Deep mutational scan, measured.
Amino acid sequence: EDAPSSDDLEQFAKQFKQRRIKLGFTQADVGLALGTLYGNVFSQTTICRFEALQLSFKNMCKLKPLLNKWLEETDSSS
C-alpha cells in the first residue's frame, strides 16, 4: 500500500475535522470510539494533533486509515 503524501494527509485531516464537527463528535469521542471499534484508544490530544498536523508523518499514516474507517462507520450508521 502506498504511503499517503503529506498533501493527502493535510487534505484528509481538514476533511476529517469538518466531518467530525458536522457529525457532532468531540475529539475525545473519536479517541474513545476508536478504542471501542479497533481496540486502540487514542487520547483527545492525539486526535487534536492529528487534525493540526502535529504528529510525526509515520503516526499520521498510522492513524489515517483508522480515522477514515471510523468516518465510514459513523456515516453509515447516522
Rank of each mutant, 00 (worst) to 15 (best):
E1A: 08
E1S: 14
E1G: 11
E1T: 13
D2I: 15
D2W: 12
D2K: 15
D2C: 13
A3K: 15
S5P: 13
S5Y: 11
S5A: 13
S6K: 15
S6R: 15
D7I: 04
D7R: 10
D7M: 09
D8M: 12
D8V: 08
L9T: 07
L9V: 10
E10A: 08
E10M: 11
E10G: 06
Q11M: 08
Q11S: 12
Q11K: 13
F12L: 03
F12T: 00
A13T: 02
A13I: 05
K14C: 07
K14F: 05
Q15R: 11
Q15C: 06
K17R: 12
K17I: 13
K17M: 07
K17H: 10
Q18P: 00
R19G: 04
R19Y: 00
R20V: 03
R20F: 06
I21T: 07
I21L: 08
K22P: 00
K22W: 03
G24C: 02
F25N: 03
F25D: 01
F25I: 05
T26K: 01
T26N: 04
T26L: 02
Q27R: 04
Q27C: 13
Q27A: 11
Q27E: 12
A28S: 07
A28V: 04
A28Q: 08
D29I: 00
V30R: 00
V30A: 05
L32Y: 09
L34M: 09
G35R: 12
G35F: 08
G35L: 02
T36W: 03
L37K: 14
L37M: 14
L37A: 11
L37I: 14
L37G: 07
Y38W: 05
Y38M: 04
Y38V: 11
G39I: 04
G39F: 00
G39P: 09
N40P: 07
N40A: 08
N40K: 15
V41Y: 10
V41A: 11
F42E: 10
F42M: 12
F42K: 02
F42C: 11
S43G: 06
Q44A: 14
T46Q: 06
I47L: 06
I47V: 07
I47H: 00
I47G: 01
C48V: 09
C48G: 13
F50H: 00
E51R: 04
E51Q: 02
E51S: 02
A52F: 02
L53T: 06
L53C: 12
L53W: 04
Q54A: 10
Q54W: 02
L55K: 03
S56A: 04
S56I: 02
S56L: 00
F57E: 09
F57A: 09
K58L: 06
K58V: 07
K58C: 03
N59Y: 01
N59Q: 11
N59T: 09
M60Y: 14
M60A: 07
M60Q: 00
M60P: 00
C61I: 09
K62A: 10
K62I: 01
K62V: 10
L63I: 11
K64Y: 03
K64D: 02
K64V: 09
P65H: 08
L66I: 13
L66H: 05
L67S: 01
L67F: 02
N68H: 14
K69F: 01
K69P: 02
K69S: 06
K69N: 07
K69L: 06
W70D: 04
W70N: 01
W70P: 00
L71R: 03
L71A: 05
E72W: 04
E72L: 11
E72A: 08
E72Q: 09
E73K: 08
D75M: 05
D75K: 08
S76K: 14
S77K: 14
S78Q: 09
S78D: 15
